[in-house]
Amino acid sequence: MARAVRRRKTRVGMVLAIGLLVGACAQTIAFNKSAEFTPSSPSPRILLMPADIELSELSAAGIAFPKAEWTAAAIDNVGAAIEGFMALRNATLIAYQAPPAASPEAYLQNQIIKLHGAVGNAVLAHKFGPANALPTMRDKFDYTLGEGVRALAGDRAMAEYALFVYLRDSYASGERAAVMIFGLLLGVAVPGGLQIGFASLVDLESGDIVWFNRLVNPSGDLRTPDPARQTIENLLADFPL
């Protein structure tokens, strides 16, 4: 457990650095696989993967302490916001059901989900900003999970796309707010909480990521329904369906 403390500090250092760099507006950058992307049907069926969300409270010292109650609320609010968003677009959401733990299906599907994590990492590393751009991906967005992705839909094959959502958000505690105020008085910049996340839409036939969006936002609140809806509007901006 000694390691956990050190890791969290690194994480916060990074998050604070982003907060300082990014400024006051929500930033999203979306990638579409191709400009000519057309949905497979007028009412597409989307497999909604369990959203990976964690909300934390920033202590006075700026360390993020995850909060179970806020996270549970955010999961509910984000779920409702996505449902509302998709209803307006005539898309049907199907909740992903994980197969029984330790079954061969579970192993296979977990590998696909992990592959999505690795692909997501690659997109975030190389497609946002010039620092780490790959010449081979310069003018195209060509990321896929391969045809093995069909395992996610299972035997039913009831969905044409899968939607992955990842969000991390932190909120200044009262003590942190006090530090920020003291800081203002003393002329020292002290960052507050930050919301970061991404969403990706995967074609369940080819495995291609047909749409990908990253969100960085110094404000926003997932703990209550209306601001959560706003975050989802931001996150799913330019959603292709």
Binding site: S59, I63, L186, G187
Partner: peptide, 25 residues
């Protein structure tokens, strides 16, 4: 003990940040 260590961590670092602010200012 882990819970107590984590709360202890928060308390100690909270106190530190004010020292740092004060020293910096």
């Amino acid at each position: 003990h882990t819970l107590k260590r984590m709360i202890d961590l928060r308390t100690k670092t909270d106190a530190l940040v004010f020292v740092q602010l004060a020293i910096g200012a």
